[in-house]
Design a protein around this nucleic acid. Structure first.
Lengths: 258, 258
DNA sequence: TTAATAAAAGTATTTGGTACTTTTATTTTT
DNA sequence: AAAAATAAAAGTACCAAATACTTTTATTAA
């Protein structure tokens, strides 16, 4: 398509979805990765992706992705937009923008790999964080000094594929961590992975992961006081465990502001 | 483009840029609107837009938009991504996704309408807020209950064009307000419109606009204490005015986290 | 029955937010 | 030139929240 100023871009639209859940037995936050069946980045681990189709909104595509690629048939989850990635160097062949979403599942369902994936697997977030150095590094998006993004995409080409996530997925994950951390104090949507009821210890485990500290560094008593506006005691105690049973809480509001 | 599952979408990409500045004489936050020269929404006020071209990143397109449509040739400003709008009902003809950005100008330059615009004009944000009811209404994007977004796009078709901004631009602006408000306490990028040095009164004017209160309702002394981590006293006093001269401040950090 | 465990519950101290008052530096008026 | 008006800086006292820490309680394991 041409107009008097140049050729308009009509790129493919990739939907990339960071899918979070929580393992109740290990009390570990989980993130879903798939092993790619086809090139590029064949056999590499990647965030689940799909191309957007005609007659479908991005949100719908994000849901279809969950169904098709991961074999999940769920009704109860929450998806929010993360950001859109437009750098030309992010793909090598035909240009594709990536609309990144985050989905929070209130349980940790069994997975089966769908089309395009050799395998779909839950990973403990702490392991992924360590493996791919998703530290709290500041990401600057200042247009005047967008050097860091440019530098990242330059370096991307030299990477060993088997030691990294496919495409710019580490960059996307890093951004997701930053976003979740920023919202921890006013809109901790990440806690939706804890489902309808949870203990404060479980909430603390998640907070600690994004704050970059050990869970033991957060005092239970103080945590309860500081976040009492976010959690509501539902008057039930947790099931059998060593020590006094923990109370169960729910999120105070499921209204989610943008 | 076809694969075994269906037809992939390759939509046009619209870059929509909300451009903010500050009028030092009236101490009013300003937002830039253009009057559309061509259909659809001919003669309606709209946020500045352009189509993305090949060989150009979305960030570059956002910058080109500033140059071409508004005749600004600036080097010193900051642009950040707001969100991406993908609803099919947002355009009537060929499908177009909109990548919305926000740009903060440290001055309020004169405008000249460029290609596609009959006029480009600065509006006092307070007037725009009132005119288009950009109140603090909660916007829910819960995928399970995305009724509000769907309802919005349904209602959009019935709107009187001359009483509203073009396309879904009121929706986009409302989201921008919400985002700015949320970031006021930890990353008030909106204050970049105040330039290299500003008085606390100027900062208070902007805070008040997004908090939905009168500037007089914010106590100067307390505001200073509460936000002292964000502002740095640069030891200079403001120029001649009635009353004791205000000190000048700068933003403590121009590092911007995502 | 006792020890160990883990969380609830409570306390005391420090920090930060809020409401309010006083002081100071400037312009305008007399 | 002096006094009044203005607007912000600077200070104060009080209340609420965050933090560090201790005690109590409900449970399991030995």
């Amino acid at each position: 398509m041409l107009n008097m100023f140049g050729i308009l871009e009509k790129p493919l639209i990739t939907i990339t979805n960071i899918i979070w859940s929580f393992d109740r037995t290990t009390k570990q936050l989980q993130v879903l990765l798939v092993k790619r069946a086809q090139p590029p980045y064949q056999n590499s681990w990647a965030l689940p992706e799909t191309f957007m189709r005609t007659q479908e909104s991005a949100d719908e595509a994000a849901l279809r992705l969950i169904r098709e690629k991961i074999g999940l048939n769920l009704s109860d989850f929450y998806t929010e937009q993360l950001a859109t990635f437009t750098n030309q160097q992010r793909t090598s062949n035909e240009r594709a923008l990536s609309l990144a979403y985050m989905t929070f599942l209130p349980e940790m369902p069994a997975l089966k790999a769908g089309y395009g994936a050799l395998e779909a697997r839950w990973f403990a977030f702490s392991a992924v964080q360590k493996r791919y150095c998703l530290s709290n590094r500041q990401l600057t998006f200042q247009t005047a000094a967008e050097a860091s993004e440019t530098a990242y995409y330059q370096a991307l080409k030299q990477q060993q594929p088997d030691q990294h996530l496919a495409f710019d997925h580490e960059w996307i994950l890093r951004l997701a961590c930053q976003r979740i951390k920023n919202k921890l104090n006013y809109q901790p949507n990440i806690l939706l992975v804890l489902g309808a009821q949870f203990t404060l210890k479980e909430a603390r485990m998640i907070y600690a992961a994004f704050l970059g500290i050990k869970p033991s560094e957060i005092d239970n008593s103080n945590f309860k006081k500081t976040h009492k506006h976010l959690f509501k005691d539902i008057g039930i105690s947790s099931s059998k465990q060593i020590g006094r049973p923990a109370k169960l809480y729910r999120l105070a509001s499921n209204k989610v502001e943008f």
